[in-house]
Simulated assay, not measured.
Amino acid sequence: MLGAMRRVVGVVAALLLAGCSTAESPGGSAPPADPPKGIKVEVVAQGLTHPWEVGFLPDGRMLVTERPGRLVLVENGKTTRIKADLGDVVARGEGGLMGLLVHPDFATTRRFTACFNTAKDIRLVTFELDGIEARRVQDPLRDGFPANPSGRHSGCRLSLDKDGSMLVGTGDTARASIAQDRASLGGKVLKLDLRTGEGGVLTYGHRNVQGVAVRRDGLVLTAEHGPDVDDEVNVLKPGANYGWDPSKGGTEDGYDEDVPMTDLSRFPDAVPAVWSSGRPTEAICDAVFLDGPEWGDLDGALAVTALKGAKLLLFTITAEGGVHAVSVPAELDGTHGRLRGAELGPDKALYVTTSNGTDDKVLKVTRG
Rank of each mutant, 00 (worst) to 15 (best):
F56P: 01
D193W: 04
D263R: 01
A349H: 03
P51F: 04
P32V: 10
E66C: 14
G211I: 01
R81G: 05
A273D: 12
V64A: 06
F315A: 00
G368Q: 01
D347G: 02
L307D: 15
T366E: 06
Y351V: 11
G300S: 02
D297N: 13
S159A: 14
H50F: 13
V304H: 02
C115F: 09
S29P: 00
G211S: 14
L344D: 00
S184P: 09
R175P: 04
L314S: 01
D269Y: 14
T170R: 01
G205N: 13
D253R: 14
L15W: 10
G322S: 09
K37I: 08
L202P: 00
A183F: 01
G77N: 06
G296K: 12
G131Q: 08
P146D: 03
V352K: 06
V54Y: 06
D231Y: 01
V233Q: 13
T318K: 07
P146C: 02
R70Q: 09
D258P: 02
K37F: 05
L313G: 13
P146F: 10
V323R: 13
M1C: 14
A270G: 11
A114S: 08
L190E: 03
V9F: 11
A213L: 06
L63G: 09
Y255T: 09
R207S: 15
S25I: 06
A306I: 02
D163M: 05
G3T: 10
V125M: 04
L129T: 09
W244T: 09
A303C: 06
R195I: 03
D85K: 09
D161W: 05
L298D: 05
K83H: 12
V12W: 07
P104L: 14
G3P: 09
C156R: 07
G87T: 10
A270V: 07
A270H: 07
R135V: 05
C156Y: 02
K83T: 14
A179V: 02
G96P: 11
A342D: 07
A33Y: 01
F56D: 10
G345M: 13
K361A: 08
L15E: 14
D360W: 08
V41S: 00
K191R: 15
E331L: 03
E224F: 02
V365L: 03
E75R: 10
A33G: 12
Q138F: 13
V212M: 15
V304W: 06
A30P: 04
C115Q: 00
G155L: 08
H153A: 10
A183N: 15
R81K: 11
F56C: 15
A91E: 06
G28Y: 14
P104N: 13
K348I: 00
E94V: 06
S355Y: 06
L129E: 03
A306N: 12
R157Y: 09
S25V: 09
H50P: 02
A174Y: 04
D258E: 14
